[in-house]
């Protein structure tokens, strides 16, 4: 049923196109891994150089498409919630099958891996001697695997949704305290987020981009946790309503998009800067500054709702 919804159908077409391009790039990446020798002037090497250039361009756009495709995915899930009994937002739809939560995890992981690949590619294209071509093509099989898993989970998830079966809403999903991980995050989200922010700031001030990049991985996880368990009740003005998806709805002024754009922008550029430093030895200062600025913006966004709630109502939730 769900495949016929235009937003899902668009994504299936997108997956089909991306799979086609991924297969081409996997073939070339295997050839690069086996045959690449930049100093060689044989016909085989020149052909390989042409192919790597072509594949790099294709993959650059494929990965770039992945970023807005993620927003379409969330939007489609949100839209689908109106067809499922019990679902109030995308959380209910993702929880409708056993594949949903893994699907969103793989989508996020692939999003960050895409950014890492795009960073290596960008850095490689700025050098005449293509010094990181072998590195970026060694990453393709890993990306192909994670993309393949995401693709499979996507098909399984949307094929398994049964509109006749009622699903749990976000209120139930995120209030569930039987999961150890969920309980840990709900109890320590704020302190974890504070620690992650201190760590990223310290790495920034000490000018340690690799540590800053690593800290941004923690900041991304802690940032999501604090949004769900620490901030969202203040946005909904309801202590029991904890959800990362309802804030994307018009009823809440699409405020969630600001949270996710700043969090993703800040952490992705921080991780990308770390990766670039790791492979080149020089830190991209502008990227690190952008990362830190967006991380601060996210912190301010997170602080805004509880503080304004407290100033209005003189109480915390």
């Amino acid at each position: 049923m769900s495949f016929l919804i235009p937003d899902i159908f668009i994504q299936i077409i997108l997956y089909a196109i991306l799979t086609f391009f991924f297969c081409i790039s996997l073939y070339v990446s295997v050839r690069v891994i086996i045959l690449w020798n930049f100093s060689d002037t044989s016909e085989k090497q020149y052909l390989l150089e042409k192919q790597t250039y072509l594949v790099s361009v294709i993959m650059k756009y494929a990965f770039a498409v992945n970023i807005p495709a993620f927003l379409i995915f969330i939007y489609a899930n949100d839209k689908l919630s109106s067809y499922l009994t019990g679902a109030m937002c995308a959380a209910g739809v993702l929880n409708a099958t056993i594949y949903g939560k893994y699907l969103i995890i793989f989508k996020i992981v692939n999003l960050y891996l895409s950014v890492v690949w795009l960073t290596v590619n960008h850095f490689d294209s700025r050098h005449e001697t293509m010094p990181y071509t072998a590195v970026k093509f060694r990453m393709i099989p890993l990306l192909f695997t994670t993309f393949g898993i995401e693709c499979t989970l996507f098909i399984l998830h949307f094929a398994s949704i049964d509109p006749a079966v009622p699903v749990s809403c976000c209120n139930v999903i995120f209030a569930d305290d039987t999961s150890v991980l969920r309980t840990f995050f709900s109890e320590h989200a704020v302190s974890l987020f504070a620690a992650a922010f201190i760590l990223t700031s310290a790495a920034f001030l000490l000018k340690r981009p690799v540590l800053h990049g690593t800290a941004n991985v923690l900041y991304a996880i802690a940032g999501i946790a604090v949004l769900i368990y620490g901030v969202s009740p203040y946005i909904y003005e309801l202590p029991t309503h904890k959800c990362p998806f309802c804030i994307l709805q018009s009823g809440y002024g699409y405020t969630g998009y600001w949270f996710y754009i700043t969090l993703f922008g800040g952490t992705a550029s921080g991780i990308a800067a770390g990766v670039q430093t790791l492979i080149s030895g020089t830190a991209p200062k502008r990227m690190v500054n952008v990362s830190m600025a967006l991380n601060c913006a996210y912190l301010l966004l997170c602080a805004w709702y509880p503080v304004s709630y407290f100033l209005t109502n003189r109480t915390w939730l």
Partner: peptide, 22 residues
């Protein structure tokens, strides 16, 4: 244009291997 094979060096640069932007 690029050669099918062989090496071309112009003013110390391996021009046959230059990416298009360069």
């Amino acid at each position: 244009t690029r050669p099918t094979s062989g090496s071309i060096e112009v003013n110390g640069k391996q021009t046959a291997k230059l990416p298009e932007e360069f």
